[in-house]
Amino acid sequence: MIDTAITINMAQRLYWKGRYVQRAQTMLKELLLGYDNVIDRDIDYGRYHYAKLDIEIDYGNAYDFIYQGVYGNHSSSIASIIMMARENAIEARNLLEERGFARLNLIHNCIVSARGKEVTPAMVEDFIDDLSFILGIFSSELGRTKAYNFVRLGQYVERFDLILRLYGGFDYVNAELDAMNTLAKRLNPDYQFNKIFTSDLTKALALVNGIINKVIEEKACIFDTVEKESQTQG
């Protein structure tokens, strides 16, 4: 089984790959939920929902809402999330399971080729299924333990980040924070456990998003800065 050394760059790629795949799946599920709510409850449901992520979207009907969710000109569009997931996956693919990479690339290719065409709920469901396949690999892959622990950590952080932003689920985050802490500790024995003692959303988000910075040793980054400065001076 391959468990090679992992560089700072690669650790970041793996972590962000996990985050973006999880983000894509969560946002797709939110799109389906929003689609029904736009039809059944309130045409503006999607606007309010995306506003929680500080995103303004505009649409005329339920199909258009889905299209804007997938291709809209905003940072949480599925097209841009998948593109970022794929970019990170390309750079880290030597440490990733091939079928998972291929499935992600396939989603990307589908999204690129379908731009400008109608997006249906059935297509969204297919993407969710594909992403579930990839997320299944995250949790079942044993061969490249360290690499997949970074991916899983990204996946956990993202899930809780979105839950906090969209639903403010503090209790759930606290209950599951142990899982993130355990993963972080496995990756770096020097990692100190985090606890959330605040009900301030901004602080809680900063804490959860800051876990990776405690796994990727600060001294490694500091050394980098010192090295670069000394080279400049030299």
Partner: peptide, 14 residues
């Protein structure tokens, strides 16, 4: 990085 003419890989954990 190079230190004392030896090549090192900077691992994520420092």
């Amino acid at each position: 990085i190079i230190e004392d003419k030896v090549v090192y890989l900077r691992s994520y954990n420092g």
